[in-house]
C-alpha cells in the first residue's frame, strides 16, 4: 500500500465486515494469554516459595528463567514444533515459559522484602511455618507478586502475536495475513487491525490488573 493515501471509510467497512472474526480472534488471544500466565503463575509462585530463602536455589531458578527469556520467541516456538506440533499447545507452552521469569523473580523479591521482624513475630506467636507463609508472608508480598503477573501478561500478549505463525490462536493471525497479502488491497487493514487489537488487549489486561491489585491489596499495604 506504499505511496497511496489511506481511506478511513474503507477501514470502517473492513471492520464492520470482519467484526465477528475480530471478536473471536481477540477472545482467543485473551484466553491463550490467561491460560499461559496461570500455568506460569502456579509454577513460578510455587518455585519462588520453595527457593526464596535458599541462595543457590534462588540463583539457579532465576538464571534458568533468564536464559529462557533470552531465547528469541521465533526460536522457542520453532523448537516446540517437532515434539508439540502446531497450534494451541506449543503456544501455551512457549508463553508459559516466557512468563516464568517476571513471576518467579517478583515472587522471590516480594517474599524476601517481608521484614525479618514480622516473620520472627509470626513464628514467635506460634504460627506454623506453613501458616507464616500463607497468612503473613504471601499477603504482604502480594502486590509485588501481582506486579510480576502483570508484567508476564504484557509479555505474553506480545509473544502470542508471533505464535500465529505456528498456527497459534489470536490476533497475530491478522498481522500475518497482512504480510501474506503484501500488495493486496486489504493487507494494511489486516496488519493494522491485528496490531492495534493486540495493543488494546495489552492495555485492557493491564487496566484489569490495576483493578485486581486495588481490590486484593490490604489497605495497610498501600502507599
Amino acid at each position: 500500500m506504499s505511496g497511496k493515501g489511506y481511506d478511513l471509510g474503507l477501514i470502517w467497512a473492513f471492520l464492520a465486515n470482519k467484526s465477528e472474526e475480530i471478536l473471536e480472534l481477540t477472545g482467543q488471544h485473551i484466553v491463550v494469554v490467561i491460560i499461559s500466565v496461570l500455568i506460569a503463575a502456579v509454577m513460578g509462585v510455587g518455585a519462588g516459595i520453595l527457593v526464596w530463602n535458599k541462595p543457590t536455589g534462588r540463583g539457579f531458578v532465576i538464571a534458568v528463567a533468564g536464559v529462557i527469556l533470552t531465547i528469541p520467541s521465533m526460536a522457542m516456538l520453532a523448537l516446540m514444533i517437532p515434539s508439540l506440533g502446531l497450534g494451541w499447545v506449543p503456544t501455551v507452552v512457549a508463553l508459559s515459559l516466557y512468563s516464568l521469569l517476571p513471576i518467579v523473580r517478583n515472587t522471590i523479591v516480594g517474599l524476601r522484602e517481608v521484614s525479618p521482624a514480622v516473620l520472627e513475630s509470626a513464628a514467635a506467636m506460634g504460627m506454623t511455618p506453613l501458616k507464616v507463609m500463607f497468612a503473613v508472608q504471601i499477603p504482604i508480598a502480594w502486590p509485588v507478586i501481582l506486579t510480576g503477573l502483570r508484567v508476564a501478561t504484557q509479555l505474553a500478549v506480545g509473544i502470542a502475536a508471533i505464535a500465529a505463525y505456528v498456527a497459534g490462536p489470536g490476533m497475530g493471525t491478522y498481522i500475518f495475513k497482512g504480510l501474506s497479502m503484501l500488495g493486496a488491497k486489504n493487507a494494511l487493514n489486516f496488519a493494522l487491525t491485528g496490531t492495534i487489537c493486540v495493543i488494546l488487549i495489552a492495555l485492557v489486561l493491564d487496566a484489569f490488573f490495576i483493578l485486581i491489585t486495588r481490590i486484593t491489596t490490604s489497605r495497610g499495604l498501600r502507599d
Binding site: 521484614s115 521482624a117 514480622v118 516473620l119 506467636m125 506460634g126 499477603p139 504482604i140 499495604l221
Partner: peptide, 21 residues
C-alpha cells in the same frame, strides 16, 4: 508452635503485620 502460643513476645522492631488491622 504450640509452646510459643503461651509465651508473649515483644521486640524492638515490633513486627506488627502491615496487612492486618
Amino acid at each position: 508452635s504450640f509452646l510459643r502460643r503461651n509465651i508473649g513476645y515483644v521486640i524492638q522492631q515490633i513486627g506488627l503485620f502491615p496487612h492486618m488491622t
